[in-house]
Nucleic acid binder design. Structure first.
Lengths: 258, 258
DNA sequence: TTAATAAAAGTATTTGGTACTTTTATTTTT
DNA sequence: AAAAATAAAAGTACCAAATACTTTTATTAA
């Protein structure tokens, strides 16, 4: 398509979805990765992706992705937009923008790999964080000094594929961590992975992961006081465990502001 | 483009840029609107837009938009991504996704309408807020209950064009307000419109606009204490005015986290 | 029955937010 | 030139929240 100023871009639209859940037995936050069946980045681990189709909104595509690629048939989850990635160097062949979403599942369902994936697997977030150095590094998006993004995409080409996530997925994950951390104090949507009821210890485990500290560094008593506006005691105690049973809480509001 | 599952979408990409500045004489936050020269929404006020071209990143397109449509040739400003709008009902003809950005100008330059615009004009944000009811209404994007977004796009078709901004631009602006408000306490990028040095009164004017209160309702002394981590006293006093001269401040950090 | 465990519950101290008052530096008026 | 008006800086006292820490309680394991 041409107009008097140049050729308009009509790129493919990739939907990339960071899918979070929580393992109740290990009390570990989980993130879903798939092993790619086809090139590029064949056999590499990647965030689940799909191309957007005609007659479908991005949100719908994000849901279809969950169904098709991961074999999940769920009704109860929450998806929010993360950001859109437009750098030309992010793909090598035909240009594709990536609309990144985050989905929070209130349980940790069994997975089966769908089309395009050799395998779909839950990973403990702490392991992924360590493996791919998703530290709290500041990401600057200042247009005047967008050097860091440019530098990242330059370096991307030299990477060993088997030691990294496919495409710019580490960059996307890093951004997701930053976003979740920023919202921890006013809109901790990440806690939706804890489902309808949870203990404060479980909430603390998640907070600690994004704050970059050990869970033991957060005092239970103080945590309860500081976040009492976010959690509501539902008057039930947790099931059998060593020590006094923990109370169960729910999120105070499921209204989610943008 | 076809694969075994269906037809992939390759939509046009619209870059929509909300451009903010500050009028030092009236101490009013300003937002830039253009009057559309061509259909659809001919003669309606709209946020500045352009189509993305090949060989150009979305960030570059956002910058080109500033140059071409508004005749600004600036080097010193900051642009950040707001969100991406993908609803099919947002355009009537060929499908177009909109990548919305926000740009903060440290001055309020004169405008000249460029290609596609009959006029480009600065509006006092307070007037725009009132005119288009950009109140603090909660916007829910819960995928399970995305009724509000769907309802919005349904209602959009019935709107009187001359009483509203073009396309879904009121929706986009409302989201921008919400985002700015949320970031006021930890990353008030909106204050970049105040330039290299500003008085606390100027900062208070902007805070008040997004908090939905009168500037007089914010106590100067307390505001200073509460936000002292964000502002740095640069030891200079403001120029001649009635009353004791205000000190000048700068933003403590121009590092911007995502 | 006792020890160990883990969380609830409570306390005391420090920090930060809020409401309010006083002081100071400037312009305008007399 | 002096006094009044203005607007912000600077200070104060009080209340609420965050933090560090201790005690109590409900449970399991030995």
């Amino acid at each position: 398509m041409l107009n008097m100023f140049g050729i308009l871009e009509k790129p493919l639209i990739t939907i990339t979805n960071i899918i979070w859940s929580f393992d109740r037995t290990t009390k570990q936050l989980q993130v879903l990765l798939v092993k790619r069946a086809q090139p590029p980045y064949q056999n590499s681990w990647a965030l689940p992706e799909t191309f957007m189709r005609t007659q479908e909104s991005a949100d719908e595509a994000a849901l279809r992705l969950i169904r098709e690629k991961i074999g999940l048939n769920l009704s109860d989850f929450y998806t929010e937009q993360l950001a859109t990635f437009t750098n030309q160097q992010r793909t090598s062949n035909e240009r594709a923008l990536s609309l990144a979403y985050m989905t929070f599942l209130p349980e940790m369902p069994a997975l089966k790999a769908g089309y395009g994936a050799l395998e779909a697997r839950w990973f403990a977030f702490s392991a992924v964080q360590k493996r791919y150095c998703l530290s709290n590094r500041q990401l600057t998006f200042q247009t005047a000094a967008e050097a860091s993004e440019t530098a990242y995409y330059q370096a991307l080409k030299q990477q060993q594929p088997d030691q990294h996530l496919a495409f710019d997925h580490e960059w996307i994950l890093r951004l997701a961590c930053q976003r979740i951390k920023n919202k921890l104090n006013y809109q901790p949507n990440i806690l939706l992975v804890l489902g309808a009821q949870f203990t404060l210890k479980e909430a603390r485990m998640i907070y600690a992961a994004f704050l970059g500290i050990k869970p033991s560094e957060i005092d239970n008593s103080n945590f309860k006081k500081t976040h009492k506006h976010l959690f509501k005691d539902i008057g039930i105690s947790s099931s059998k465990q060593i020590g006094r049973p923990a109370k169960l809480y729910r999120l105070a509001s499921n209204k989610v502001e943008f």
